[in-house]
């Protein structure tokens, strides 16, 4: 899988690949995924609104979307996956950290219409409030077909006290423990890339 750069636009993905994206201003992104193509996206967002639409237009199209965001201001993230044909797969992971008393909103939607068979449509959402931020997650699965495997989960809260206690009991300070936990939430599976390095810097400066 090779790495390419995309701007703020609609793109059609014709061969399997991994994309790395770093945004620090509002963006609309539309992906059209072709037959037998597996697209993996690592999308890092720094404190901005984001709108993503993924169209699975051909059979055996598959998307794995890792969206990670750090926020200081009120921001919205909207991700919509359209399963436009049978035998398509989507796995969406949205992880956000809310640093201040701001409002972060996730609106995540998977759509499988009535006549579309044999799809897998999953989403997992998590927002961690580091202070007393106000966050909301609206996970939506609009599924009209019985022959679909789907799941969704949403967690909003703070890091678990037990995790902090464990890390600190080994001499790790509170601030460092928080950064370790933020990194593990936001860059869990991302491989080394320029975009990841920029994002790591944002984590370092929380």
């Amino acid at each position: 899988m090779n790495k390419i750069d995309i701007g703020n636009k609609e793109i059609t993905i014709t061969s399997s690949k991994e994309l790395y994206i770093y945004d620090k201003e509002a963006n609309n992104r539309i992906y059209n995924i072709e037959k037998d193509v597996v697209l993996k996206v690592y999308h890092y967002n720094y404190d901005s609104n984001s709108k993503v639409v993924i169209n699975l237009n051909h059979e055996s199209a598959e998307v794995e979307y890792h969206y990670s965001t750090i926020n200081y201001n009120d921001n919205n993230t909207s991700i919509t996956v359209n399963h436009n044909i049978k035998n398509t797969i989507s796995n969406i992971y949205n992880h956000g950290v809310n640093v201040l008393n701001n409002k972060l909103h996730f609106d995540i939607c998977g759509i499988v219409p009535k006549n579309i068979e044999n799809c897998i449509c999953n989403q997992e959402n998590q927002i961690i409030n580091l202070t007393n931020g106000n966050s909301t997650i609206l996970p939506k699965l609009l599924i009209d077909n019985y022959n679909v495997s789907s799941s969704h989960s949403a967690y909003i809260g703070k890091f678990k006290e037990d995790s902090l206690f464990y890390l600190m009991s080994r001499g790790i300070s509170y601030d460092t423990a928080i950064k370790l936990l933020v990194s593990s939430l936001l860059i869990n599976s991302g491989k080394d890339s320029e975009e990841l390095n920029m994002f790591k810097e944002n984590i370092e400066n929380i």
Partner: peptide, 30 residues
């Protein structure tokens, strides 16, 4: 963490799972 820095260590009855933080990263940081 200040107590740990004095040399107090607690091997826990039920050690906490921390997903995404590797054992080696954790030990390096500590």
């Amino acid at each position: 963490d200040e107590r740990a820095k004095l040399g107090i260590f607690l091997a826990m009855q039920d050690p906490t799972v921390i997903d995404g933080v590797t054992n080696s990263e954790f030990l390096k940081t500590a």
